[in-house]
């Protein structure tokens, strides 16, 4: 079995035709499904939040069989994730894609659990503290993409679980929990 770091690649990754968009509908659906699963799985284990279409990305080429995904194929697979709500385009040109291996709702739940685990039910934290503070070390929140974090926090704010307040710069934006 081929590996990328400690990530175990699926067998289809070594089968050349999976790197060409298939013209027949049924075959293509299966192909897209396999790639969607692979991208989500890889991003989750490697803690990757953003994929840039033009940039090198380990999954987009397989040197062992000398195949790589065309721009069109990359876009097709990521678009399929976007349609499913598991990804979002970050720009109009569809060059950067935010990967939601947890949906925003799931991230919100993770934040709530984190708050409870640390006894912060009515505490205050800055955004940066959540992303890189000691409390979040070893949890999934550590190193979380800022866009995703803000979206999850806004969802919680909407539900009345916290209040987001702004400081003088984006660096000291913070939240007041009231779980």
């Amino acid at each position: 079995m081929q590996k990328l770091g400690d990530f175990k690649l699926p067998q289809f990754f070594n089968y050349p035709p999976y790197f060409t968009l298939q013209p027949v509908r049924d075959t293509r659906e299966k192909q897209v499904q396999l790639w969607k699963d692979l991208i989500l799985d890889y991003c989750k284990t490697q803690h990757i939040f953003v994929i840039e279409l033009e940039e090198e990305f380990p999954l987009f080429s397989n040197p062992v069989i000398e195949r790589s995904l065309s721009h069109e194929a990359r876009k097709a697979f990521l678009s399929a994730l976007v349609t499913e709500g598991r990804a979002e385009w970050l720009d109009k040109g569809h060059r950067k894609c935010l990967i939601l291996w947890h949906r925003i709702q799931d991230w919100a739940d993770i934040i709530l659990r984190f708050v409870k685990d640390n006894g912060l039910e009515d505490g205050v934290m800055t955004i940066e503290e959540i992303r890189s503070g000691i409390e979040s070390r070893g949890t999934e929140l550590h190193g979380i993409d800022r866009t995703i974090l803000m979206r999850a926090l806004k969802l919680l704010e909407h539900k009345g679980k916290l209040a987001i307040f702004k400081g003088t710069s984006t660096d000291d934006e913070g939240v007041k929990f009231s779980v």
Partner: peptide, 26 residues
């Protein structure tokens, strides 16, 4: 069959999963 346009000679290849299992295709 599945098509494969990725080879550097530019010729389209038609692969047949039924005659070569994925695991042995490398």
């Amino acid at each position: 069959a599945m098509i494969d346009d990725g080879h550097k000679d530019g010729k389209r290849r038609y692969w047949f999963p039924c005659v070569s299992s994925i695991s042995s295709s490398v």
